[in-house]
């Protein structure tokens, strides 16, 4: 069976890869393209550690086939900071100690960024609901929520 050739845009750079029909976007990101910032916590959509955006929509990379992203635009944690300049969310996560082990962090950052794009002024419960698909077992979520709320406020201030 010959492989499928896929042309796509990842973090604003053109990207191409070969995959098999059963490969997920997460498999390709991690194993083929070696963008291992998206993590596999479950492989079945339950943990959100693999969160990326696909044409601007937040998705689980483990629930998207690699073949499906032909012509699409994908953004991952690797594209979040602008070179040396961390995104405000990244800075706030450090400032608020919103991570312990950090395995959930890439997914939560990507998901939070998608939230703030859609809703720049969320309530705390809106943040909690939006992030319900991103499991964190270390923090009890408190500091994560604080970091997102603080980042939202700062981002609003910049506009």
């Amino acid at each position: 069976m010959s492989k499928i050739h896929v042309t796509t845009t990842i973090n604003n750079d053109p990207a191409e890869f070969l995959c098999e029909a059963e490969d997920t976007l997460l498999d390709v990101l991690r194993d083929t393209l070696r963008l291992s910032g998206a993590k596999e916590g479950c492989g079945s959509g339950d943990c959100g550690a693999c969160s990326v955006t696909l044409d601007g929509r937040l998705v689980c990379a483990c629930l998207v086939l690699a073949a499906e992203v032909e012509g699409a635009k994908i953004d991952t944690i690797e594209g979040m900071s602008d070179g040396e300049n961390l995104h405000i969310l990244q800075k706030k996560f450090l400032e608020h100690a919103a991570l312990q082990c950090g395995i959930c962090t890439p997914g939560i950052l990507v998901a939070s960024k998608a939230l703030l794009k859609k809703n720049p002024d969320p309530t705390e419960s809106e943040v909690r609901l939006w992030l319900a698909g991103n499991l964190c077992r270390c923090t009890g979520y408190d500091k994560i929520i604080n970091a997102v709320m603080d980042a939202a406020a700062e981002m609003r201030g910049l506009e």
Binding site: R34, G37, E40, E78, L86, L94, A97, I103, T105, P106
Partner: peptide, 23 residues
């Protein structure tokens, strides 16, 4: 004090290498 952790940048940029990231 509440200082920033040394592994922080790696962990918010996706660079940190966890078990499954080894090659």
């Amino acid at each position: 004090q509440r200082v920033e952790r040394p592994d922080g940048i790696d962990k918010v940029t996706g660079r940190a290498m966890y078990g499954a990231d080894a090659y």
